[in-house]
Each structure stands twice: as C-alpha cells, then as structure tokens.
Design a binder for these strands. Structure first.
Lengths: 336, 336
DNA sequence: TTGAAAGCGCTAACAC
DNA sequence: GTGTTAGCGCTTTCAA
C-alpha cells in the first residue's frame, strides 16, 4: 500500500511533525534530520496525500481555470500552460468551462466556490471583465489572476499580451509592402482585444499619415460568418482596399472565401492578415499571415502569479505583459 | 462558514450517521427522518466536503481523462462531454494531457496512479491501445473505459463510433453522385480509425463493383502536410480521380490547397470529402462535406460506463457503438 | 529545535 | 432503523 507520513516517520526514527516540516520546507530542522527524512521519503517513494493535506490545512492546493471561449486551440493552449505550471508548483488545476451568456452563471460560480475548496481562480476573458464575478471572489477573499482583461481598473493582478503593439506592427508591415488602402474588420465590440487591435491599427495608420476611410472599417463579431459579411461589403463597395486586416483568423479565412468567390487573387490582388495563429491559418491556401499570441506563457505566468498570491509572497507587478510574434505566411505580398 | 454534517445533524435533531445515510441515499431511514434531514440540508445550504469524503471513503470521486491528441476541437468536445456527465453523477473530472511519444509515459502514469487517488480512468486513442498502460491499470485494479480503441481484444468496456459504417456511407454518397474513380487518402497507419475508414470505403466500392486502383490509394498521416503530398500525387499522376476521400479534414483541406494551386475546380472538377467535422471544414471555401462523430455523446457515455464500473453496478454491454452523421457541404457535386 | 496530541469532515464498523 | 465510536493522512497547536 501507499506509504503514509507515519511510515516515513518511523523509518526515519523521527516524529511525524518533523517529517511534515521537512516535506513542507519549514524552517527549524537540523540538516542531519532533514537527510534522514529525505532518504526515508525516497526509500518508501512517499508522496503526500493531497486529500488529507487539503482537508486539514488552510489550502487545498487546487486552482481553477474558468473560461467561456469558443476557440478550441486557444483554450487548449491555455490549459496546457496552466497545468504545466500548476503541477510544477505542486498544485492541481481544475478546469471549469462555463457559458458566459448563461443567466445563472454567477449563481453557479457562487455555488461552486461555496462548496468546493479552491485556493484561487484564473479568469479569462470575457469572465475576467465581469464585475459580478470579481465582486464575488473579492467578497470571499479568494485570490484570482485575470488573463487578458479589457478593464485594468481593478487592483488585482493580470497578465496580457501586447495586442496593441502587435496590431501596430502588423499594420506597419502592410504599409511597408506598399499598401495604403487598408481595411480593418473589427472583432466583437464586447471584447477588449477588439479595441486594442483597432487602436494599434489606427496608430500605425496615423503615424504614416494614412487616412482611415470610414468605409474601410467594418464591425465583425470574430465569427467566420461575420467576417464573410464584412468581406463581401469591402470587396463590392466603391472604395476597395488592397489589404484587409481581419481581427482574427476565422474572419480572415472568410475573406479568402469571399475573394475566391469573386475571383480576387490573394495575395496578388489583395493582401489579407489575420490574428491568433489559429489552426485554420495553416490549413488554408494561401496560408495566413497572422499574429501569434504567447498563450502558453501567459497561462504559465498567470499560475505563477496566482500561487504567489495564494502563498502571500511578495508581489511582482500587478501587470505582466508579453509580446506577440508576427507570423508571415502566404496571404500577403507587395502592392502591385 | 460552511455548514458541516454535524451542523445538519444538530439542526435536524439526528445523528451524523443518519445524515450521512440520507445524503448518500442509503437504505434503512424512515421517510420522516429523511424529510427532517433534507430540510436541514436545504436550510443550511449544506454540501459534502469532497476532500473529507475522498479521504475517509473508499472512493475519491475523481476520474481522470487521459489523452494525447493533437486535435484541439476533438479534445475539447471530449472534455466537455466528460465533465458534464461526471458532474451530473457527483464526480470530478481531472484532465491529464500527456505525450504518447514520451519514453517515460508509462512511468509517469504509474507515478500518478500510485500517489493520487483516482477512482477510474478514461483512455483515448492511442493510449487506449497501449498494452503497458492497460496492464498497469489492471494490475492496480483501477477501472477504466476506452474511447475509440482499435483493438477489441481486452475484456474492458469501451465506446466507439461506427467509423466503418460512416466511411461506407460517405463512399456510397460519392458513388451516388456518379463518381467511379474515387481515391482515398488513408490516415496514420498506427491509428485504428485509419483502417476502419478504409475498410468502409473498400466495402462500398466492392459492393458497387468498382475497382480500387492501387494508384488511387495513398498513405497519409492525418496531417495537413501529408495530405498535401498525397493530393499532389493524385492530381499529377496518370490515373486521376474525380473524387477524393480524405480520412480527415486536415488532409481534405490540403487537397483543396493543391487543387487551387493546380486550377482544379472544386467541386466542379473534383469532389472532396473529409472526416471529423473539424472547425476548418466550415472555415474553408468550398466548405467540406465530412463526417461528424458524436464525440460529446461518446464521452458522456464513457463516463457513465466508468462510474457504473466503479460502483460495481450491473454492467451494460462491453461495447457501446454510436452512429456518425454525414454533413453535406459544398465540396462535393455530381460527376460532370 | 523537536514532538505529542488534537482534529479537519466525513464514512465504516459495529453496537443498540 | 438509528446512533456511537474510531480513524482516513495530514497539519496545527502547544508544550517541552
């Protein structure tokens, strides 16, 4: 059977409390004792029982990743980064998918935090901008870290990628290819990313003294269908762009569809860029020039911040910002 | 603070054991007592502490979903179905991504099952066909259910979708459109799905007295790149097909790419079908005719089977087979 | 610096 | 049918 702390104690010839001190890196244990305990631990292949630890101790060593996101590759990368870091620090990650349009959302989360014992939460957009959820966690004194929030007004820690800068650089890239009539298909208005990406785009255009014609700014919803509608408008209206910046890859893929139907050659007659480096960006032809967010690192760092918070250790900054990467593929070319 | 079983007991004026009996649906409690307990539970908003329950009881009420799969939408749908069902039955689902090419895989899993306390495992392909993992679980007497296994020789329960039939029907569909020169791009040879899909294809062809020319059977690997290679061969060789059955959507998307590059019009000059109903099948133009597996239901049912196993309840069948659905989109048309 | 004892919230064993 | 008691494996408290 599994070795318990008692087995270790008797093998090492010390008390259970001493074993507990050693395995928890508590101070006030003589090195000689530590060695004895450590070799007993190794010999018995002992690991703490997380259930017992969680029951008796202050902490359960469980953190919960809460998300409501329709993008599978994004969610999975988030999960993988969070699991990796949580396990490395001796925590378990619980994943909690939910639906942010559900009317009972807050009540459901309330019931979950009331009855299971998580040490902290990782909140992704759009949940991390939900005032009710934040108020709930604060009221219950549960530490949380927000991932890519839109609002920064809360004093709670958060991690994000520099969407503004990446959109700025991508736009500059299009301009450097000679494009001046650049359209943008914006994302869903409720998403922070939408506005940051648009601001980055605008700043680049302004800096290069390029006017952004209103007819070249379309309001999408991050879905393929919305991208299709916007693309159709852009490619049929009087003022046609020579390049389109779609605020995510799904909408960029929709641009390719409309272009194909209208016999507009990409990238020869129209350059298209997306955002996210979603799987589709490689599975489509021409493959999409896009922006890769450091999602895995974002998640790892968010867990790190959260655990620091839980352990009440010294804080690093409230904000941690990570850089995106431009991924140049085949949907862009110099303006003819 | 949270209400405990003691609080409920004193409010209801009964012993803790009676409360325990009621909340666990054990027999031998008078209805009057049950009512008293139930109203006390409701009044205090009591829920069992899962940590304490897991520590004392035989079961931890944790089941683990083990997977190693590069397909994000597949994995996420699996997770969602499994979480849904597990929670409905009062269990927690732990997700455990791993890498089936890792040399330490079995040792890692061994360490996990030795030290945390899961009640059972859900195994997905290719892990569910790994003899070492199965032997490990059997040795430790841990119940497990396999999801879409290739080998059926084990007596352990499994769930799967009827790949053979779906591939058969899809092939029949192509034949009904008038196609006779139908090529197939097979999947990775190590995957069971590869062979079942090929068999379904072959049976349909044979039934209709259509010969399958060797040059129309290509060996892919389920990746976009492998699909591209196969498609290039098919579209440049002497014997060209008028329809291509790609064993998954990634490879079907690759066929569209090659066709576009070679100015082969889809579906006018070439019909293409995929498999899986991956996100790309809707994000590409023409959108892909494909097969949708009931992954969500597969996962739910697998959990159901597993929990039955854990509770040592009467068994349903070892095998549970679910039907796929043909999804007809725009990549197929009658042969011209 | 170390250890003995109590007890987290629950279920199992057994008594009544 | 119902209750009492012990104890899961660990951490906490407090005494030495």
């Amino acid at each position: 059977m599994k070795a318990t702390i008692k087995d270790v104690a008797s093998l090492a010839g010390v008390s259970v409390k001493t074993v507990s001190r050693v395995i928890n890196n508590e101070p006030n244990v003589r090195p000689a004792m530590q060695d004895k305990v450590n070799s007993a631990v190794a010999e018995l292949n002992f690991k703490r029982n997380p259930l017992a630890r969680g029951l008796r101790g202050q902490n359960s060593f469980i953190i919960t990743l809460l998300y409501s996101n329709p993008n599978p590759s994004y969610v999975l990368e988030l999960q993988n980064g969070a699991i990796e870091q949580a396990n490395a620090e001796g925590f378990n990650l619980q994943i909690l998918p939910c639906d942010h349009t559900n009317k009972n959302l807050v009540r459901n989360i309330e019931s979950i935090i009331a009855h299971s014992s998580q040490d902290g939460f990782l909140l992704t957009h759009p949940l991390c901008d939900n005032e009710e959820i934040i108020a709930l966690l604060e009221k219950n004194n549960i530490p949380f870290v927000r991932i890519s929030p839109f609002h920064h007004k809360h004093s709670s820690p958060y991690v994000l990628s520099d969407d503004h800068l990446a959109a700025y650089e991508m736009t500059k890239h299009l301009i450097s290819l000679g494009h001046t009539d650049i359209a943008i298909i914006k994302g869903h208005p409720d998403y922070g990313a939408t506005h940051k990406r648009y601001e980055g785009f605008s700043r680049a255009m302004k800096e290069m003294n390029l006017e952004v014609d209103d007819s070249l700014v379309k309001e999408g919803l991050f879905t393929f269908e919305s991208g299709e509608t916007c693309a159709r408008q852009l490619l049929t209206q009087e003022h046609k762009p020579t390049a389109i910046f779609a605020s995510n890859d799904y909408m960029a893929a929709a641009v390719l569809k409309v272009a194909a139907q209208m016999h507009v050659k990409i990238p020869a007659n129209l350059s298209v860029v997306g955002y996210d480096d979603a799987p589709v960006s490689k599975q489509i032809w021409p493959s999409l020039t896009t922006v890769k967010q450091p999602i895995y690192d974002l998640a790892k760092h968010a867990v790190q911040k959260l655990i620091r918070h839980i352990k009440k250790q010294d804080f690093d900054d409230i904000e941690s910002k990570f850089q995106c990467k431009l991924v140049l593929r085949n949907s862009t070319s110099p303006k003819m």
